[in-house]
Design a protein around this nucleic acid. Structure first.
Lengths: 341, 341
DNA sequence: ATGAAAGCGCTAACAC
DNA sequence: GTGTTAGCGCTTTCAT
């Protein structure tokens, strides 16, 4: 790689001042047509590119946003990221991407790395650990010294900032009601997530739906399976426990895995056992039977989060509006893992 | 957000010079223990963080790598990215991520944005358009003025740089041989990719396998379906055309979609029709029957590409080693969409 | 032990 | 029209 060419070098070879070069390349009217032509020609021939780092230093902004996601092995986050990418790109922002893998340590270390002017703001969906351990001072620290944060989906109440979430309560409620209406009475919940706020909300929505339809709540039907436990064993225990006629999976993996296990045990789906899964995932469409699911409009979440963050970054200090939590509506996509109404 | 605190401000309030503060915070022996203590205390209390942008300017490096991928809606690239992320992180590099969506325009624009000191190097898997249009001057331009490039999977012969690829020829060859050995004779190829080098290699491998087993080659069995055409119609045309007993799908989507269409037409899989798919994708495991596939060791590709790039970035100008193309071995994962040997 | 000065690459206000 | 100067935040060499 050749050494990058700078204004200074151009100025020296052309025997003009740096300022003249700078102005000429900006097509300033202050500079004579002739000088501009010479300078521009030289710059073009030598592939001059203004050094962004220098400009960042000068402007005290980087036009870069950090994005911290738990994983990409989840269609929901991939779609959110697509929404983020499109929006950021349109507004001229670059993205620094970090995968937390659900680990608080990674989250904390990454944020520390970014707290020094590298980025103008942060989009984050919290790691499960940071929620279970209720640790959030790294986030507050970022806000204090680095810039605005917008949280999405997996958010923390401890931090005051803009948030984009889905109405987890209502969509669990609606999913449960749908199952009840199609004749299900023993509805279980299955999840590999546990310590997240969204999990609590979903369970509340589910319970409320049961209550409203006078169906007794049985906590044993709620299986939040931790990493330490064997998923298959837990599911078999659940299926052995009592007659279950419907299962709500809180993410794609649990839903599909449970369905596969149930099928291998001879359950007829949806005749004997109905399934509703969270996230409009790829798998749902292709497995047999295809799975009724909750569409969270992930792309839109990404878009809204990014728009909000950029607005915050660019807002005048004076017109700071109050932080808001935006709730994105969800809807059910009806497929063949639930009975027809 | 409070205004970030700087060395200058610390120096002013503490009535020392900026240099003293800088040295004190680096625990330099030049500074008296007492002064150091005062400065460190103040800095800690005020959450001082050195400004990375200023340091980047000074050091002429950003410890940031750009990653350009066609999409994340493809398990292969998600896994590659995981490999990249882990490796980059371990070495203290940040990642700027760009999704090209297969569009040359996005690729060119993004690279132009990065050509000015924003990143130290570039990891890229080319967009389909840049391969079909054989356009690569944006890449050469990046190498000339911005830093090293390492290409992976979808690479260009026109550019001299390090490359990490899989042995597409051999793995298509092996997949085809496996099908032949399990008794298939009319083997078709289905793909939504077409103008990529990897597609040509895969087809060559497939043809060589047929030749070696004295099976006539019929180009009508190779369906590279462009976006403009309806996938389902094309597949039906193929199935109507002649008796096909095996299909190789060049990516996850084509494989799964074709299998679903074949099943809806009553084909028994693998008894009447076998399937082998590229990429060790999520769907393959969960559909019925599960799909035999080619494992490309995506994570490893990401790891190797990143290691190579960082080595290039950090190498002394003197010990420049020749550019190399590393070929990653693949293997078949046997599942239920192919007959047993 | 502390500080002044130069410089990384650039822009902008202000001379000339 | 063109150049000088100062400064963005930092490090480092070279005084003092």
């Amino acid at each position: 790689m050749k050494r990058k060419i700078t204004l200074k070098q151009i100025a020296e070879t052309l025997n003009v001042s740096i300022a003249t070069v700078s102005k000429a390349l900006k097509d300033s009217h202050e500079i004579s047509v002739k000088t501009k032509a010479i300078i521009k020609k030289y710059a073009a021939e030598h592939n001059y590119r203004p050094n962004t780092v220098a400009l960042n230093l000068l402007n005290r902004q980087t036009k870069t946003i950090a994005v911290i996601l738990p994983t990409f092995h989840n269609n929901f986050f991939v779609k959110i990221f697509n929404g983020i990418e499109e929006t950021a790109n349109k507004k001229g922002y670059k993205l620094i991407v970090i995968i937390s893998n659900g680990e608080l340590k990674k989250e904390v270390e990454s944020i520390a790395m970014l707290e020094n002017g590298t980025v103008d703001g942060l989009l984050i969906s919290l790691s499960e650990e940071s929620q279970s351990q209720q640790y959030s001072q790294h986030l507050q620290s970022f806000i204090d010294i680095a810039g605005p944060i917008v949280m999405f989906d997996r958010v923390s109440d401890a931090i005051t900032c803009d948030k984009i979430i889905i109405d987890d309560f209502n969509c669990a409620y609606n999913a449960t009601v749908h199952l009840i209406k199609t004749g299900c009475k023993n509805i279980a919940i299955v999840s590999v997530l546990h310590d997240l706020g969204i999990v609590k909300d979903r369970i509340s929505g589910y319970k409320k739906a049961l209550e409203d339809h006078n169906i007794p709540i049985n906590d044993k039907l709620i299986k939040l399976i931790k990493k330490e436990y064997d998923f298959e064993t837990e599911i078999k225990t659940l299926l052995d426990y009592t007659t279950i006629d419907a299962i709500i999976g809180l993410e794609e993996f649990s839903t599909i895995e449970t369905m596969v296990i149930a099928q291998s045990r001879g359950y007829k789906i949806p005749e004997e056992l109905s399934f509703v899964g969270y996230t409009n995932g790829n798998l749902y469409k292709y497995v047999t039977p295809s799975v009724t699911c909750i569409n969270q409009h992930a792309n839109y979440i990404g878009k809204k989060a990014t728009e909000k963050l950029i607005a915050r970054i660019e807002e005048k200090e004076t017109d700071t509006t109050a932080f808001e939590t935006k709730v994105i509506k969800t809807n059910l996509i009806y497929r063949n893992s639930t009975r027809k109404l």
